[in-house]
Design a protein around this nucleic acid. Structure first.
Length: 110
DNA sequence: AGAGAGTACCGTCAAGGCCT
DNA sequence: AGGCCTTGACGGTACTCTCT
């Protein structure tokens, strides 16, 4: 939906903490593990791809986390609002009851 | 019909807290 | 200390309503 220009802002900069991930889909041949091969230095392109992949994963996780957070907040607000309604009804009932008792016993309401 | 305001929702960033 | 999660803040988009 929201198509922003943010992707250009800090792409592949690794500005935030990175997630440990183990992607099965890599451009590397089967059995090759990029960073763990002793003595092999990843090319700049590989580093850039890795950074991009990490960033996309981070964005995806945060997207889901934001959805979860907002959902929880909406539910919480519904809960609070319904409690407010209940308390208002209860308050009205108690006020009515007080008025009746005052009528019966001739006390002044205040 | 078109313009503008108001509202809801979404994605992203950043800060702070928790856990190992 | 570093990884991960949660959430407030912000900016963008889509939709609705009202006015002209």
């Amino acid at each position: 939906m929201a198509v922003t220009g943010d992707e250009t802002e800090s792409a592949a900069t690794g500005d935030m903490s990175t997630y440990q991930i183990c992607s099965p889909t890599s451009s590397l041949p089967h059995g090759m593990v990029m960073a763990s091969s002793p003595g092999s230095v990843p090319s700049p392109q590989q580093l850039a791809e890795e950074a991009t992949r990490k960033r996309e994963l981070r964005l995806m996780k945060n997207r889901e986390a934001a959805k979860k957070s907002r959902h929880w907040k909406r539910e919480y607000m519904k809960c609070v609002e319904s409690r407010v309604c209940m308390l208002e009804v209860q308050n009205r009932m108690l006020s009515d009851e007080l008025g009746i008792l005052n009528d019966i016993y001739g006390l002044d309401a205040y």
